[in-house]
Amino acid sequence: MHVEVDQPKCVASGQCVLMAPDVFDQDDDGIVELLTDRPGPGHRDGVREAAAVCPAAAIRLEEE
């Protein structure tokens, strides 16, 4: 799985951090930061959930 984030779209809701804290973080303004763009198998369900609920549609996944 490959993860991309669109930082200018991010609205800083932090939903992704709540769902996959090992993959997503937020800077001081709340903007998403990727901790890894290739999450391990144990984190992938959380990443899929995060991409689905992101209120800015700012997370995109490529399943490999």
Binding site: A12, S13, G14, V17, L18, Q26, D28, D29, G30
Partner: peptide, 9 residues
């Protein structure tokens, strides 16, 4: 900072 809300959530 948005993270300030997380413990409240």
């Amino acid at each position: 900072p948005p993270k300030a809300l997380h413990p409240w959530r």
